[in-house]
Amino acid sequence: MDNVLSFSRGRVPLLISMPHPGTRLTPAVEAGLVDEARELADTDWHIPRLYDFAVEMGASVLAAQYSRYVVDLNRPSDDKPLYATATTGLYPDTLFDGRPLYREGMTPSKEERARYLAEVWTPYHRTLSEELARMKAEFGYALLWDAHSIRSLIPHLFEGRLPDFNLGTNAGASCAPELAERLQAVCAGVSNYSHVLNGRFKGGHITRHYGQPEQDVHAVQLELAQCNYMDESAPFGYREDLAGPTREVIRQLLQAFIDWGRERYGR
Score class of each variant (00 low, 15 high):
N3P: 01
V4L: 04
F7L: 08
R11N: 00
P13T: 06
I16R: 05
P19M: 01
H20G: 04
H20E: 01
H20Y: 04
P21W: 03
T23Y: 13
R24W: 06
P27E: 04
V34G: 00
A37V: 00
E39N: 03
L40M: 02
T43F: 01
H46F: 05
V55S: 12
Q65F: 11
Q65A: 12
Y66E: 13
Y69L: 07
R75M: 13
S77K: 08
K80P: 00
P81G: 11
L82D: 08
Y83A: 09
G89D: 06
Y91G: 02
G98N: 09
L101E: 05
Y102F: 15
T107H: 04
T107V: 01
Y116P: 01
L117Y: 11
T127V: 08
T127R: 07
L128Q: 05
L128R: 06
S129Q: 14
E130T: 13
E131W: 09
E131F: 07
L132Y: 15
K136S: 07
F139E: 07
A142W: 11
L143Y: 11
A147M: 12
I150G: 05
I150K: 10
S152H: 01
P155N: 05
P155F: 06
L157D: 05
G160Y: 13
N166Y: 07
L167G: 11
L167Q: 10
S174N: 06
P177K: 14
E181F: 14
Q184N: 15
A185R: 11
C187H: 03
A188N: 03
F201L: 08
T207W: 13
Q212K: 12
P213R: 10
E214T: 14
A219F: 02
E223L: 11
Q226P: 02
N228S: 06
S233C: 09
P235A: 11
Y238H: 12
E240M: 10
L242K: 13
V249A: 11
R251D: 11
R251I: 02
F257L: 13
G266V: 09
